[in-house]
Simulated scan of single mutants.
Amino acid sequence: MQNAPKQTLNVVKYLRDPAKSGLRVREGILNGRRVEYFKGKSAVNAILREQYKASSRPAAADREEAAEILRDVLQYQFIVRCDRSDADDARKLRINPKMAFQEESYYAWLYEGSQWMIILGGIGLVAVVLAGVMFPLWPPILRDGAWYLSVAGLGFLGFLFILSIIRLILYVITVIALPPGLWLFPNLFEDVGFIESFIPLYAWDTPKKKEEQSSAMLSDAKKLE
Rank of each mutant, 00 (worst) to 15 (best):
M99C: 15
I118A: 12
A66I: 02
D86K: 08
S114I: 07
F78P: 00
Q115M: 10
Y76I: 00
L70A: 00
K98Y: 10
S85Y: 00
S55V: 12
A60T: 09
D89E: 05
D72Y: 12
N96K: 04
I118N: 15
R84G: 10
I95M: 06
K53C: 08
N96A: 07
V80E: 07
A66V: 00
A100E: 14
L70W: 03
Q75E: 09
R94A: 09
Q115L: 10
Q51N: 15
R94H: 07
W116D: 14
P58S: 06
E64D: 10
K92P: 03
S114C: 11
I79G: 03
Y106W: 14
R84F: 02
L93F: 05
G113F: 04
K53V: 09
A90R: 13
A59M: 09
L110F: 01
A108G: 01
M99N: 10
R84Y: 02
Q77K: 13
L93S: 00
C82W: 03
Q75M: 08
F78D: 02
I69N: 07
Y106M: 07
A87C: 06
L70G: 01
A61G: 15
M117S: 14
Y111L: 05
Y106S: 14
S55R: 12
R63V: 04
I95H: 08
L93I: 01
A54Y: 12
I118E: 15
Q77V: 06
A61W: 13
D72N: 15
K53E: 12
D72C: 13
A108W: 02
R57D: 04
K92I: 08
